[in-house]
Each structure stands twice: as structure tokens, then as C-alpha cells.
Nucleic acid binder design. Sequence first.
DNA 1: TATACATTTCAGAAATTACTGAAAACTTCG
DNA 2: CGAAGTTTTCAGTAATTTCTGAAATGTATA
Lengths: 180, 180
Amino acid sequence: MKLSPLMEKFILHWGEMGTRWGVNRTVAQIHALLYLSPRPLPADEIAETLSVARSNVSTSLKELQAWRLVSVTHVLGDRRDHFRTTSDMWEMIATIIEERKRREIDPTLALLRQCVDEMQHDDETPKEVKERIKSMLAFITMLTGWFDQIMALPRSTQRTLLKLGAKIARFLPQETAAEK
Amino acid sequence: MKLSPLMEKFILHWGEMGTRWGVNRTVAQIHALLYLSPRPLPADEIAETLSVARSNVSTSLKELQAWRLVSVTHVLGDRRDHFRTTSDMWEMIATIIEERKRREIDPTLALLRQCVDEMQHDDETPKEVKERIKSMLAFITMLTGWFDQIMALPRSTQRTLLKLGAKIARFLPQETAAEK
DNA sequence: TATACATTTCAGAAATTACTGAAAACTTCG
DNA sequence: CGAAGTTTTCAGTAATTTCTGAAATGTATA
């Protein structure tokens, strides 16, 4: 696929962003390319477009599929797999957050719970340290709970909330601001 | 500072998490150590505790300060700098998100705006591609707008919203669910 | 079933990132 | 000012991550 300078700029930037967030640059570039592409692309075309090895594309696509960000389709009269990603930004972000939660937050919660559990019979660990761990567990639990609930709402409600922004505060029962 | 097995486990996990999110492992470990520590720690104590070079600690602490996650204090009768991080999880997360926004989202928005600007006189880039870039810009603009507004609310309101979770939908004007 | 096409695997090479230790720079106090 | 204490810088090294190309594996069709 021939890239215009605009497309190239976009893809390169996305690659950079990827690295900042712990995602392999090529993986992020492929994702960006597929996001822009009006049609699903076969692996060899991706390799050619981005000037990376075919094998690298293969590995990266597997990674993107593991993230549920890329899916396979087929084109009539072509034996090759073709790859595409959703063009719905909301869906894309939701998927990324869900996967990160599954891969990173959930194991962290598990560890924190284990820590809190073990600390009962642990007289080596200072009291203050135990408190810190407990409050981190409480906080992350609350935040992920919020997130799960919001994600379970119908898309239209989510969109309403997003559009409302801070105006949502208007709808809250009055005394809201009264706290320590 | 002597680490109990519990503390060690926590710090190692945090280091791993860091690497997943594009943060240097040592930087994340130091952050974790300071989070747990009941008192501010001097750099050499951090180095000793985590078994890394003093110079590495120095660099990492600078990094953490650049992220506004760590600050310097002094202890009476000690010429060394002592370092601490907030123990308020909400504040910590807010800082991390704000910094990431400043470093990564804002430049991305700038790039997207530039792309949208340039695409007017660009006949090399397919129409569909232009649309994708526009809708990404629209989406990120909306999301960061929401975030900025929520962050500007008083802490107590934020806490109320967080606690409410999906129940917030109850307070919305009725017809909410009516959309495409 | 054999052939052509397509994809994956993987060992080694290349590139990048992280770390160390020594020296330089800076700071405080006597 | 000078000595002692503290922090920073940075060149070289180490560790890790990424990438490639060749071989192996998988798959469809003739």
C-alpha cells in the first residue's frame, strides 16, 4: 500500500507512542497502518509498506490478535489472510483498556490480596507498610469496580456521560460537596 | 532499609508493572520503595536496599521528580537529600495520568490537528484515510475534554462519582438510551 | 498426492536500553 | 579557603529487546 506523507507521519508517530506505553514499535505501526487502511491488508503488503521482514509482521500480527485489536478476513480469489482493525475508536480504546486490565491490573490485584492475606502472620513488616498496601488495594479495587460498571452500561449511556463531562455533577444529590 | 519478604515481593512486582507500561524497572522499584517507606529515604539507602548503583538511583530519582511523583525533603542533622512520594493513591494516579497526558496525548493531539489541517491540500491521501484521522482526533479530543473536566471537580465530587459507579446513570435525564 | 503458495518458528545479528564505576561538579561547614 | 560529604555526569559495558532470513510447517488446489 502506497503511503502518502501524511499517512507516513501518522504511522511513525503511532509507533513512537507505542514504545512509550510498552508496546513494540512495529506492532504499533502495523496497528496504525491497519487503522488507516480502507481495506484489509495481507501480511506481505504490510511488510512491504513498512519495510520490515515478513516474519516480523507475522509475529506482530499474532500479538495484535492476542490483544483482540486485529482480526483476520479473506478476500475472494486470494489465499492469503487479510488483516483489519476496528475503525471505531471507542471500541478500540475499550479493548485496549480491557486487555491491559486483564493482563496487568488483575494480576496486581491478586498480588495485593495475597499480600494483605499474608501480612496477618507477618511481624517483620512494619505496620505503616501494611497500611500502604491495604490502601493501594482498596483504591485499585474501587477504580476497577467503577470501570467495570461503566463498561457494562449501554454504549449510548456511556456516550451521554462522556459528553456531559463535569456537568454530570449537576445531577448529583445536592450535598455532594460536603465532606472532610 | 531492611525489606521484609512481603515488601520485596511488592517492589519486584511494581518493577515488572513498570516495564509493561514503558517505565524503567529500577525507576518503578524506587517509586514502590518510597511508597512503602514510612519515612523519606536518602539515595544511598535506596541504592543499598535495591542493590543498584548509587548513580543509577540518582538518575532514576531525577526521572521520578520530572514525573512529579517524588519530592525532596531534608532531615535535621543530615546533609543528604531525602526522598518521598505521596501515599495518597488518588493523587498519585492523577499525577501519572496528567503527566502522560502532557507528554504523550497532547503531542498526539497536536499532530492530529496538523494532519487534519494539511489534508485539505493533499490529494495523495485517500478520502477514507482522512476520515479515520479526523475521527481519531474527534474521539481523543472528547475523551481528554471529559478527563480535564472531571479532574477540575472538587476531590469530594470525584469521590462521589467514583463510588456511584454505574448508578450515576439513574440521575441522567430519562431519554438517555434513545440513540442510534 | 505433489506442487505452489502462505505462514510460522527460531537462532543469530543488530539495535536499543539500562547500568555501573570513576571522575567531575557541587555544597556545606570548620 | 580547604576538606569532607553529597550528587551528577558520562563513557564503556552489560542486558534486554527487536529484527531478520532461512528453514520448517501448514494449507489449498490441480
